[in-house]
Simulated assay, not measured.
Amino acid sequence: MFEQAVWMEYKSRGHELFWFKVEGECDFLIFDSGKMTTCIQACTELTMENQEREISGLLEAMKETQCNDGVIFTLRQYQDMVIEGIRIKIRPFWNVILADSPLIQKLKW
């Protein structure tokens, strides 16, 4: 259900979304105006149990597509990491929704 919320948010903003699977998988490859902009993993919480799967799938997609923007959306976690020289952002999804919301942008003083 969390992945569906991420999909719906990006789709509502007019982005094209694709799924990536070779050895690992990445939940979303985000395209804007025909250009790939971001690789996204969506999981409610990044834990010791799922960390390897989530990160390796994201790294594989970023390397294969030569994308420099990789994000793992969670419910609460906020962290930056560099793995194999590649920067990965871990962000709470609600923060992204609010930060980029046209309604919130209009309310800024």
Rank of each mutant, 00 (worst) to 15 (best):
S56K: 09
F28W: 02
I88M: 01
W109P: 11
D69I: 03
T38W: 02
H15N: 09
I86V: 14
L46V: 08
E23F: 11
I97E: 01
P92Y: 07
Q79N: 15
E23S: 11
Y78H: 10
F18P: 03
T65L: 06
I104N: 13
I104H: 12
E52I: 08
I86N: 03
L46M: 06
F73I: 05
L29C: 04
K106E: 05
L17S: 00
M36Y: 04
V22M: 13
E49R: 10
I86Q: 08
E23W: 07
L17I: 07
I90E: 03
S33R: 15
A42C: 01
C43W: 05
I104V: 14
I88Q: 02
M8N: 15
I83M: 11
K108I: 09
K11G: 06
S101K: 05
L29I: 07
I90G: 00
M62K: 05
N50E: 09
R91S: 11
E49I: 10
G24A: 06
T74P: 04
A61W: 00
N95G: 12
W94D: 13
P102N: 02
M36T: 04
E16D: 14
I104E: 09
L58F: 04
G34C: 08
T74Q: 07
C43V: 12
A61F: 01
F31M: 05
P102W: 08
K21T: 10
I90Y: 01
G14D: 12
E52G: 08
Q51K: 15
E52C: 07
A5C: 13
I30Y: 00
T74I: 06
